[in-house]
Nucleic acid binder design. Structure first.
Lengths: 236, 236
DNA sequence: ACAATAGTGTCTGTGAGACAGTATCGA
DNA sequence: TCGATACTGTCTCACAGACACTATTGT
């Protein structure tokens, strides 16, 4: 759509003072959360190259020519997980001048949520390096994390917890069809506290619709499968 | 702190593929709100130069060398209004590749709130061009707005309304000492709906503390001045 | 029959919403 | 005394929290 020399660019560059302003690299960093083994986990990569070599880092890509930020984020998710069409949301932009020791890089962080069953057949291009780690353990361990990524993770975790309480984003962490005990467990894991069955069901009732399917083969009463209700406002 | 050629920069630039990735200009755009004449107003500038000349636009600055995003935003506010130390908050980052016809510019938007009394002695360097406009009228009028700034304003307005309902940010729109009818009016203007006196007072009670001062000289019962209570959690 | 988990009925306290009442100024 | 606005008391109702109860499977 845009030629590399649009009308006005010369004028722009003429007024551009490199001593005051600088051209900056823009990256998106991806915070991909899922729930597995009763645990909130995050997708990380282990760096092989110079800055912070050997450290864990968030997966990320540089924003490409002609690409929107959202497109760059989705490309990153695709490269890292092989998935497309998952939930994503821009979180915050981190731009301290020395956050990357190489050159000035500004990072636009995106949160992605995916259910563990979709992520099960993950097989991206770079998956050799990718690891799925329990967030809480990762943050509590002294493990060194590259750049300012530890802080970014803390922030994303805080936002996720907030939004789970007043929106239905947690639905993106379970399969399309899910039981209420299953969904409740996800809420409890993210929020870090137990919930009452009856209250939980009343709360999510307007956001779900029944299916005809039930669990089977377990030594107790089967539970009904539900599906997310499409209509309704889901706020923020 | 950082020299312009830190160790690793050469290696970084060697791997850097300009066909795929590009160096991008990063700007901050400022959404400075205040309340005046029973109206929520926003600070805008009228552009003199090429892209969108003559159009209204959000004030903004390019991020300077060695500057954090927050610092750039505060510098912009200072240049535009002469003020420092006012409330600010990063909102969202806009990066569509053709949002600026000159070259690729990514905009990190910041919301600033200031009370009308502080803004009264505004006298920045570029104020010749600055105007304070009622937000609702501006958006409803067909007036052409530069770049994607109309959308940015819509978003900021939506966020402001949301946060006013569950935080105490509205306090930044009134002077340090304020009466409750005054504060209530600000809430009503931002939310666009009338509130009940008694309920409003109960809601803000934990966030304020009394002073000994009262209004005087008006033909009715005087109202007490309050001050924002420092302690307490103010969420988000 | 029993263990185990799914699912429901209902009491209670808290807080928002609505409205009526009282208080205190200048004229 | 009166008009005008500040401030308070209280009723109602919706909803979150807590807990006890019923339901349905495999063994």
């Amino acid at each position: 759509m845009m030629s590399s020399h649009s009308p006005g660019e010369e004028e722009f560059l003429k007024n551009y003072d490199p001593g005051l302003y600088e051209r900056i690299s823009v990256a998106v960093d991806l915070l991909t959360f899922t729930v597995e083994d009763d645990c909130l986990k995050i997708l990380m990569v282990r760096r092989g190259e110079h800055p912070f070599a050997g450290c864990l880092a968030l997966p990320g890509v540089f924003v490409g020519r002609g690409e929107t930020l959202d497109e760059a984020a989705m490309r990153g998710v695709l490269e890292e997980t092989g998935l497309s069409g998952i939930y994503y949301e821009q979180l915050y932009t981190w731009g301290d001048p020395d956050r990357d020791p190489r050159t000035r890089v500004i990072s636009v962080s995106y949160m992605n949520l995916v259910s563990r069953d979709k992520l099960s057949f993950r097989a991206g291009r770079r998956t050799t390096e990718a690891v799925l780690l329990p967030v809480r353990e990762l943050l509590d361990s002294g493990e060194k994390i590259a750049f300012d990524h530890r802080r970014i993770i803390e922030y994303a975790l805080w936002r996720l917890r907030n939004k789970v309480e007043y929106t239905d984003i947690a639905f993106h962490l379970v399969p399309e069809e899910f039981t209420l005990p299953e969904l409740q467990r996800v809420y409890e894991i993210v929020l870090g506290k137990p919930l009452f069955k009856a209250n939980f069901r009343k709360k999510v009732a307007p956001m779900i619709e029944e299916t005809d399917r039930y669990t089977a083969g377990e030594a107790h009463r089967p539970s009904r499968y539900y599906r997310r209700r499409e209509n309704e406002n889901q706020a923020l």
